[in-house]
């Protein structure tokens, strides 16, 4: 009798079909966002056309796209775009490197935490844009200033999230790893770090947004080249079309970077397993 029960119990658990993505699990809402955006643009285009709003005030989307093309074709906007991206990512990666490293150390060592925490608490709430005058005195208005500003803005969300991620690691997992013979380095590398990855990624996500904001804002104040600088210049001479074109470029950049991070998140999850 027990034999019968046994085979029932186990057969019921065998996966019914070979591992294959189920039709019903496919994401069928992916086109909602793009369609909503297209509707919005059409509405904008049509209402400007028929509402006789002056172009100086609100240009049509089609005009904005043409202007953007012009900027790339004749005004060398690629250079500004490249420069801005360089500043954004320069600061971001610098902050990621230092922030994750320091965060891991602070999360894992009580002593390092005790020393570093007071500095973090003091610097975290300072509005980073308030550091512009000081940084300009120290670094001038070149790339190193932009990158330093961006890094300062990025480092805290990354650092704080990394510490939280490390601390949240389930004590039981560490015990299990020690039970299986893990040494300290193995525990950090194979348990604590992978456990902290989602939190670290949350920090990186926040940081990239902050980096874009800070770099563009700083470029508007001090730079000659870069998207922020071009935006400021266009605004001063009332080139509304150009203003919108650069805003459009920034928006597209935002979308691309966000989606890119999602992809990267998937890759990192695969890395976590080793």
């Amino acid at each position: 009798m027990t034999d019968v029960n046994r085979s029932i119990a186990f057969q019921a658990e065998k996966p019914a079909s070979p591992p294959q993505a189920d039709e019903r699990l496919r994401d069928d809402t992916w086109w909602y966002g793009p369609v909503a955006m297209a509707c919005f643009l059409v509405f904008w285009e049509v209402s400007v056309m028929f509402g006789s709003i002056p172009e100086l005030f609100l240009p049509r989307p089609s005009v904005v796209v043409v202007t953007l093309y012009d900027l790339f074709a004749t005004k060398g906007l690629v250079y500004d775009l490249g420069l801005t991206l360089y500043r954004i990512f320069g600061g971001f990666f610098l902050a990621a490197f230092v922030g994750i490293g320091l965060g891991l150390l602070m999360g894992m060592s009580k002593r390092i935490y005790a020393i570093a925490d007071i500095f973090v608490a003091a610097l975290y709430p300072v509005p980073k844009i308030a550091l512009v005058p000081l940084l300009v005195i120290w670094l001038g208005t070149g790339n190193s200033f932009q990158i330093a500003l961006s890094a300062l803005g990025c480092i805290f969300p990354i650092l704080v999230n990394t510490i939280i991620g490390v601390r949240q690691c389930d004590e039981g997992l560490i015990l299990a790893a020690r039970d299986l013979g893990a040494n300290t380095v193995q525990i950090q590398r194979k348990v604590v770090l992978p456990a902290a990855i989602p939190a670290i990624f949350g920090g990186l996500r926040l940081a990239l947004g902050i980096s874009i904001i800070l770099v563009v804002a700083a470029e508007m104040q001090t730079a000659r080249y870069g998207l922020g600088a071009k935006l400021q210049a266009a605004g001063q001479v009332l080139e509304t079309g150009q203003v919108f074109a650069i805003l459009l470029l920034l928006a597209v950049l935002g979308i691309l970077l966000t989606k890119g991070q999602d992809r990267l998140g998937g890759l990192v999850n695969r890395w976590r397993a080793n």
């Binding site: 039981g172 299990a176 039970d179 299986l180 013979g181 193995q186 194979k190």
Partner: peptide
């Protein structure tokens, strides 16, 4: 040499079943 089977399982959630079972050997 000792090994433990835990009341609360303590499996690493980011590892598959086979990678969890092989974890101890991987460490060695």
């Amino acid at each position: 040499r000792m090994a433990t089977v835990w009341q609360s399982f303590n499996l690493l959630p980011w590892r598959t079943v086979v990678d969890n079972v092989a974890f101890g050997m991987e460490l060695q």
